[in-house]
Design a protein around this nucleic acid. Structure first.
Length: 524
RNA sequence: CAGGGCGUAGCUCAGCUUGGUAGAGCGGCGGCUUUGGGAGUCGCAGGUCGCAGGUUCGAAUCCUGUCGCCCUGACCA
């Protein structure tokens, strides 16, 4: 018996995705990715194929962020995929952090082998590492580009793919190869580089909230979670629907560590040679994973309108041959009218689905893909000059008839209403699952996980805890070992995560003073 | 990388314990009947059972190895 049949028998409401989030979150996530046509597994271990509907979301992410980067003075450039092994060795902590997950190219030719297959030949004198991140190759280039204080600041971004040989992969959240952007900047002063780090953190938070409708907490990573080689690592952290934290973006203040390792130096206006202060910052296709786990429900994906591949899907009802021409002409009229309307900086995008499929199939496909608005247009609507509108934020059968002119006028407003609704819902969810805790006992009780067998799926995680912390890495390590919970970040002030946000108190684990409450959670 | 589960048709899986010429449902294609909601019906196509060895007269089934996927953990954007 299929799971859907079982559901029917048990009288549960039929959902497009089985299992539901509640039943098995990890499996639900995979089913959403699959049934929304976002991506699929590939013949290559740990690597996914991003399908058109998923890639279009990424293109919208790129468009949005790229505009913000350029508005803050950054220029795009492109650097090599391969990094000579010796480059990677220059910054000790950096090597340490990435060495275990590097793909290495050792040969440059294939020859016929003794058994008929191909074998690598032409061994390279120096192996090439496939970039896991580009600090080293970009730093080496910066060293040539920067001579004088007049060359600074140097503000560069690259859109690229990187490879990290992870042990365990999950589509969009952690794949061996992934797409991202990495910003790299060099500055004359400490202050300026720090300001850049914070500026880009704010850009990320702005993008996450206003484009992806994904509420984030801005904060600093503790020592243990810092980027290898960085002086400070700042991040945006978001709560997924299983109440785990997802690090959605990072911005690093690198101090002079990389500048010294790579001799990025400039002459100041008094003729002294100084090392630059550098930053790096990045977000990846993981943002799509975060968007899925923030907004998708038991009926599948829900694309925030700002990044939706199509805003509106038109489904003509064409089963009466005598009305077909009329219906299609009316649909063309809708499409033309919407071409004059703009939402979120782009002309409203319409997907006109004329495929010869049964109505229900088509409807559910678009629900599972998460199109924000569907319009059903049949003879009845044409006769009355109406469109029959269904919104992804309402029930599948909760549909509304609107005059075509009214709909066209209001379309952008409706999309914004959907976008705002998503953010509000996600914020409310985070608020409901964020708790203030002041004793060690309550902390352990909160994060205690019920015993489960080895192969059993993990129960839904408890949530975020705002608790004081004396900052001791050994204490954090102990809690990590006990509960698999870590400090997700030390939040910046003014984010209203709890009533006494940002005020000093007492560390519940040691009784020592604590500067402020930090965010504790399990994470991806 | 450790523990667990699993690789059989495009997809989900049954068959394996007790070896004897490959099954179902969904999906696809074609009919008919339908149609404002994941329809019904008839027919058709589709698999050297992950791969490599071994045992056997005979292997999807037993044994060994190997590769891959999923779950839990450690590592990490």
């Amino acid at each position: 018996m299929s799971q859907q049949q079982k559901q029917k028998q048990q009288g549960k409401p039929k959902t497009a995705i089985t299992p539901t989030r509640e039943e098995n979150y990890a499996e639900w996530y995979q089913q959403v990715v699959k049934s929304a046509d976002l991506a699929e597994t590939s013949p290559v271990r740990g690597c996914m194929v991003i399908k058109p509907w998923g890639y279009a979301i990424w293109e919208n992410v790129q468009r949005g962020l790229d505009g913000m980067f350029k508005a803050t003075g950054h220029k795009n450039a492109y650097f090599p995929l391969f990094i000579p092994l010796s480059f990677l060795e220059k910054e000790a902590e950096h090597v340490d952090g990435f060495a275990k997950e590097c793909a290495v190219v050792t040969h440059h030719r294939l020859e016929a082998g003794p058994d008929g297959g191909l074998v690598p030949a032409g061994k390279l004198e120096e192996p090439l590492v496939v970039r896991p991140t580009s600090e080293m190759i970009i730093g080496a280039t910066f060293a040539k580009w920067v001579q004088s204080h007049r060359d600074l600041p140097l503000l560069i971004n690259q859109w690229a793919n990187v490879v990290r040989w992870e042990m365990r992969t999950r589509m969009f959240l952690r794949t061996t190869e992934f797409l991202w952007q990495e910003g790299h900047t060099a500055h004359a002063t400490d202050e300026e580089a720090k300001a850049e780090t914070m500026q880009m953190l704010d850009v990320y938070a702005d993008f996450a909230e206003n484009w992806l409708a994904m509420p984030v907490i801005r904060g600093e990573k503790t020592e243990g979670e810092r980027f290898p080689g960085a002086v400070e690592t700042w991040c945006i952290e978001s709560m997924m629907q299983d109440r785990k934290a997802l690090q959605a973006g990072t911005s690093h203040f690198l101090g002079q560590n990389f500048a010294k390792a790579q001799e990025i130096q400039f002459q100041d206006d008094e003729g002294n040679r100084e090392f630059c202060w550098t930053t790096s910052w990045g977000v990846s296709t993981r943002l799509i994973g975060g968007t899925i786990m923030t907004h998708a429900d038991d009926d599948g994906m829900f694309c925030p309108p700002m990044v939706a591949p199509a805003h509106i899907v038109i489904q003509p009802v064409l089963h009466k041959p005598e009305a077909k021409d009329e219906v299609m002409a009316f649909c063309d009229k809708i499409i033309e009218a919407l071409k004059t309307k703009v939402y979120g900086g782009r002309v409203i995008e319409v997907e006109y689905d004329t495929r010869d499929l049964r109505g229900g199939d088509k409807t559910w496909q678009w629900i599972k893909r998460g199109a924000p608005i569907r319009l059903e247009v049949g003879p009845r609507d044409v006769a009355e000059g109406n469109v029959f509108m269904a919104r992804r934020d309402k029930g599948p059968k909760d549909k509304q008839s609107l005059k075509l002119e009214d709909f066209v006028e209001r379309a952008a407003d409706i999309l914004q209403e959907i976008q705002d609704g998503l953010l509000a819902r996600a914020k409310a969810f985070r608020k409901a699952n964020t708790h203030v805790i002041d004793t060690e006992e309550a902390f352990y009780e909160f994060f205690k996980t019920p015993e489960t067998a080895d192969n059993e799926t993990a129960p839904i995680h408890a949530g975020f805890v705002m608790a004081h912390f004396n900052g001791d890495p050994k204490l954090e390590e102990r809690i990590k070992n006990d509960l698999a919970v870590t400090v997700r970040c030390i939040p910046l002030d003014g984010q209203k995560l709890c009533d006494d946000q940002g005020r000093p108190g007492t560390c519940p684990f040691t009784g020592e003073p604590s500067a402020k409450r930090v965010v504790w959670a399990k994470s991806y």
